[in-house]
Computed example of a mutant assay.
Amino acid sequence: MKRAFDILISLTLLVLLSPIFIYLFFKIRSKLGTPVLFRQIRPGLDGKPFEMIKFRTMKDAVDINGNVLPDAERMTPFGDKLRNSSLDELPELWNVLKGDMSLVGPRPLLMEYLPLYNEKQTRRHEVRPGITGWAQINGRNAISWEEKFDLDVWYVDNKSFWLDFKILLLTVKKVLIKDGISADGHVTIEPFKGTKSK
């Protein structure tokens, strides 16, 4: 039922929002150049890698040694607006349609975080990652990594169609009020460095 719902909603939204996709494509191209889409390998169900796609929000900026500058220095006002409105996440609907992701589930993080998880935190990969999730409506990037992972595992243990429906409704509210988009002192959230707790 969850997969059927994902297919129906993602396909419907991809069609209905196609004018917005086209507008954002040309707007990003004019403001940030190419590529318009940001592609990155992320861990999915059972930690299996997949290519996640988002709209690009940052410049390709490097220092004199060719090292990529910190996110805060590469973020543009336009990119910040995209991220604050969560419009940069729209291409992930294609990941949902393909089956790499779900509408609701723990957010797909970085591949390099996999060996840093403790046994409990690894359980977040027992379900498909989502565009939104329980952690996103309960603090998003404004809470600690440990709190976020506890919320992810709670979702794994309590997932249901009605919980997903509730999360989707609350996500709309969170996006409209732009709550919890970034952590203090960071464009999004500081990198995860592991935890000692088991």
Rank of each mutant, 00 (worst) to 15 (best):
V175F: 02
E147D: 14
P191C: 03
F165H: 06
V104L: 04
F5C: 12
G180L: 10
E89W: 09
D152L: 06
N65H: 12
P106N: 08
A61N: 15
Q121R: 13
I137W: 03
D157R: 03
T12C: 05
L110N: 04
L11H: 01
L169Y: 00
E92M: 11
I28E: 04
L24I: 02
K159R: 10
I20P: 00
T57I: 07
F55Q: 08
K31N: 15
S85A: 14
S197N: 14
S86A: 03
T188M: 13
P77F: 13
R83P: 09
N95D: 10
R74N: 07
H125G: 09
D152R: 12
I177M: 15
F161Y: 07
R124V: 06
R107I: 00
Q40L: 13
V104W: 01
H125R: 06
T34D: 05
A135H: 04
I53N: 05
W94F: 15
L163I: 06
T76A: 06
V175R: 00
R124W: 04
L170R: 15
M75K: 11
P19A: 14
G180M: 12
F78R: 10
L93S: 02
F38I: 11
V172N: 10
D6W: 06
F50E: 12
T76C: 08
E126G: 03
I64V: 11
E73K: 14
V104T: 00
A135L: 08
I53M: 12
H186T: 11
P108N: 00
I28P: 01
N67R: 15
G133A: 12
Y155M: 12
K166Y: 07
L13S: 05
F165K: 15
E146M: 11
G47Q: 04
V68N: 02
D6L: 03
D184S: 14
K166M: 04
G185P: 03
F21V: 02
K2M: 10
Y113T: 14
I167G: 09
L32T: 06
F192I: 14
R56H: 07
T132S: 09
L169A: 08
I22D: 00
D100K: 06
L163A: 13
E119M: 10
R42G: 12
I167M: 08
A4L: 15
I28R: 11
H125Q: 07
K81F: 15
P70F: 02
W145L: 05
V156P: 09
P191R: 03
E147W: 09
I7Y: 08
P91H: 12
K148M: 08
V36A: 05
S182R: 11
E73G: 10
E146R: 08
